[in-house]
Design a protein around this nucleic acid. Structure first.
Lengths: 208, 208
DNA sequence: TAGATTGTTAATCGATTAACAATC
DNA sequence: TAGATTGTTAATCGATTAACAATC
C-alpha cells in the first residue's frame, strides 16, 4: 500500500465499496469505470486513477468484475474482520447507534455502552447491549481489546472520554460531539449541526 | 457574495462560526487569525484568505472582534432566521434527531415527523413533534412553507421521499440514508457506516 | 481484426501557503 | 515610532481530468 493516500481518495474508495455492495446485490457481474462513475457522479478517469494507487483490478476492453473488485477494495480498507466497539453516552444518539442494525450487519460490533447517569446503569440500551458505569470504561477497553470508541456524550465531556479511551488502548474514535478532539489515534467526526449549517449556507447562496 | 465558493471554504466557514460561538461563550473579545488557526488546526493565512472572499472583518495589528466576526459570518452562512424542518422516518435515528436539543437552540425547528408505520401515527416522537402519515408529506410541506427535509428512512425509500419533498417545495435536504439522492436542491449527507469505514481504513493504514 | 476499456502519463485546474506591503 | 497583524498577491503544492498507448 502506498505511503500517502489523499483523504479524498480514502473517502471515494469507501464509496466505491458501498456502490459495489449494491451492484453485487443487484446481480451485476461486470462494470466499467464509466458506468461506475455515472452511478457515483464522478469522472471515470478519477476512479481508474484512484484504483491505480493499489494495483490493477480490471481487464482492458472488458471492465471490472464486481465481486472481485468488491473483495479487493474490502481488503484494502480493512473490511474483513469484526471490529470491537464501545459506545460512550447512552442518550438519544447513543441509543440510535446501538439500535442501528446496518452497523452490526457490516461487522461493527458494539460490546457495551457507558454512561455516568446512575438511572441508566444496568439497563439495556439495545438488545444485548448493557449500560455500564463510565468509570469502568478504561478497564473494559483494555480487558476486551476494544478497537473503536464511539463518543456520543455532550461536548464538554468528549475530550475526557477520548483520553480514557486512548488510555485503554483504543485505536480509533468516531466522534459525534461538536468538538475537535485532541488525540493520537485517528478520529472521524459526525456533526449533525455542522452539516445542517453547511446545508443552509448552500441554500442561501443559491437564493443569491 | 462571490459566485463560486469552494466547498472546502463553506465547511471551514461553518467551523469558524462554531469556534467563535465557543469563544464568545468563554468571554474572549478579540482573536487573531493565528490563535484561531491554532484552535482549529489550520494555517492562519488560510483563515484570512477564506474570510477575504467575503470582505474585511479584522483590524491590522489587532485581530478580529469575536462578536463582530461571529455576527458577520452568521449573516453570510444564513444563521439569522429560523429554519422550518420536517423529519421523515420515525425510527431510531429520527427519534434521536427529534430529541436533539442543540438543533432547536440553533434555530432548526422540526414542525412534524412523518412515517408509514400505522402504529406510530399520532404518537409524539419528541415533545411537541407529532408523527403524521407520510402520505400527507407533500401537502404539509407546501402548506407550512417547510424549507428543509431530514431524510431518516431506509435506503430503499429515500429517493421517493426526496422526490415528495421536492414536489412540496423543499429547498434543502439532510440525508441520513446511505444513498446518493438525485435532486435539484442541495443535499448534505450524514452516513455513519461510511464514516466508520473511513475510520477503519485509516486504522489499518496506520498499522502498516 | 475491430471495438472497448483499462492503466498511466502529462496537462490542467484549483486550493493552500508563504510572503509582504498596508496599516492599526 | 515600533510591534503586531491584517488583507492580498504570487508561488507552491496537490488533486482532477484528458488523452492515449496497451491490451483484452
Amino acid at each position: 500500500m502506498p505511503e500517502k493516500i489523499p483523504r479524498t481518495v480514502s473517502k471515494r474508495l469507501v464509496s466505491y465499496y458501498m456502490c459495489l455492495e449494491k451492484l453485487l446485490d443487484e446481480g451485476v457481474e461486470v462494470i466499467s469505470s464509466e458506468e461506475l462513475a455515472r452511478r457515483l457522479d464522478l469522472k471515470a478517469s478519477q476512479i481508474r486513477k484512484d484504483l491505480s494507487y493499489f494495483g490493477e483490478f480490471g481487464r482492458r476492453g472488458v471492465g471490472y468484475k464486481v465481486e472481485f473488485l468488491y473483495n479487493r477494495i474490502g481488503e484494502i480498507i480493512g473490511v474483513q474482520k469484526e471490529w470491537k466497539i464501545v459506545l460512550v453516552g447512552a442518550g438519544n444518539i447513543g441509543r440510535a447507534i446501538a439500535n442501528y442494525a446496518a452497523m452490526r450487519e457490516r461487522g461493527f460490533k458494539i460490546l457495551a455502552a457507558f454512561d455516568n447517569d446512575p438511572q441508566k446503569l444496568g439497563t439495556e440500551i439495545a438488545p444485548g447491549i448493557l449500560v455500564r458505569d463510565v468509570r469502568e470504561l478504561e478497564d473494559f477497553v483494555r480487558e476486551n481489546n476494544v478497537e473503536i470508541g464511539i463518543v456520543a456524550v455532550p461536548a464538554e465531556a468528549a475530550q475526557e472520554v477520548a483520553e480514557r479511551l486512548e488510555k485503554g488502548g483504543i485505536v480509533g474514535i468516531l466522534n459525534f460531539a461538536p468538538v475537535k478532539l485532541k488525540t493520537t489515534v485517528p478520529v472521524e467526526n459526525v456533526d449533525i449541526t455542522a452539516s445542517l449549517r453547511v446545508l443552509t449556507f448552500e441554500i442561501v447562496r443559491r437564493r443569491g
